[in-house]
Design a protein around this nucleic acid. Structure first.
Lengths: 193, 193
DNA sequence: TAAATAAAATGACCATTGGTCAGTTTCATA
DNA sequence: TATGAAACTGACCAATGGTCATTTTATTTA
């Protein structure tokens, strides 16, 4: 049973997350004051400092949460489908995330600009779901021309590539919009694996 | 002839740039106050606001300057050499930049985390040198299997790839250090072109 | 070269923000 | 119902961002 204290605690914490998320998305991180966050969350300022060190602490935790959420969603959706090849599976997975961020541009902006690999590593340790991406690669590697020992590095390269190209084309339309960039991005990934 | 006013003006501005650069590098951007910058630069606070809108304004201009500087240096060095192929030329260019940033990690950290494609576009318009990267691609495209119309997109993809992989491996040693990652990065680029 | 004009530089000043902590409220336990 | 523990509060102060009337410096004009 969850005690009342526990429940209240989570309520305050969650309302802080929700308030910070909305403000970071709509006003930007630099333009959001702690005062804005606690006011929107309906808690006292001191409460903020019970849960978070500063603005960048709640930001880190926020994007860790959001990013593992969307990654997990993409993994689950991918597992539900049947594919002819690993290539097809991988591209489906990446496309799922791209389409998601096409609809949630502000979230992409927030996540991508602040998600360090260090944070991702923490997710990789702490969240079982994240392992699934690697497992997908593990399962599929026989279909590829890749040396066994390069799997992790290649996975990294593909995720970095997909991430940075998607970010630029979705947020900045540079060098072109995402729908124009998708074919060449996918062709590139096919060349890599 | 450069007037005395002009000369003084540039001195103040440059001392602000130099101070901000050193502080951003060593203390971090969030931890650096405008007061710190003007104190280090030896000018009054009001002077700062004559030249820059805020902290992020001087940061933008700083990284635009630093990044076009290193890009230009790499281009000049590459032009001095003779290559057997476009592939060789491109990899030399990228390697030059990687080696530079290996020796200047803090600068890479500052630039990469804050260089938006928007800023790069401005450099692309304003600085002739930046065009040279595209020209290198233009000259070399006959050596590749790429369709003519995909040159710009491919250039973009390769630069994004090299940039994000280099950043992670140099700064975070993730997923491995840059010397371990280089072979696979270069192989990947070869596959792409 | 001296006076008038223009431009640049200054730093005291105030509003906003980050962060603290003594006191208060809420909850679990005996 | 009393007691102790934990969560919560918001008044408070130090630090920061940004302004602007005044002063200093450079240029132009007479």
């Amino acid at each position: 049973m969850v005690s009342k204290v526990e429940r209240n605690k989570r309520e305050k914490e969650n309302s802080l997350y929700a308030a910070a998320y909305e403000l970071f998305i709509n006003k930007g991180i630099n333009e959001t004051a702690i005062n804005d966050i606690v006011k929107k969350a309906g808690v006292a300022k001191g409460t903020f400092y019970l849960y978070f060190k500063d603005k960048y602490d709640i930001l880190d935790k926020l994007i860790l949460d959001k990013s593992s959420q969307i990654l997990n969603e993409a993994i689950v959706e991918t597992r539900l489908k049947v594919f002819q090849s690993f290539e097809e599976e991988l591209l489906y997975f990446i496309d799922y995330i791209i389409e998601y961020f096409k609809e949630n541009k502000l979230m992409l902006k927030l996540i991508y600009k602040n998600l360090s690999w260090g944070i991702f590593k923490k997710a990789y340790r702490d969240y079982d779901e994240i392992h699934e991406i690697y497992n997908m690669f593990e399962r599929g590697y026989e279909d590829t021309s890749l040396p066994r020992e390069d799997i992790e590095k290649t996975l990294f390269i593909i995720l970095e590539l997909a991430g940075s190209v998607s970010y630029s084309s979705i947020i900045l339309n540079e060098p072109d919009n995402i729908d124009e960039m998708k074919p060449i991005l996918f062709d590139t990934i096919k060349k890599i694996i």
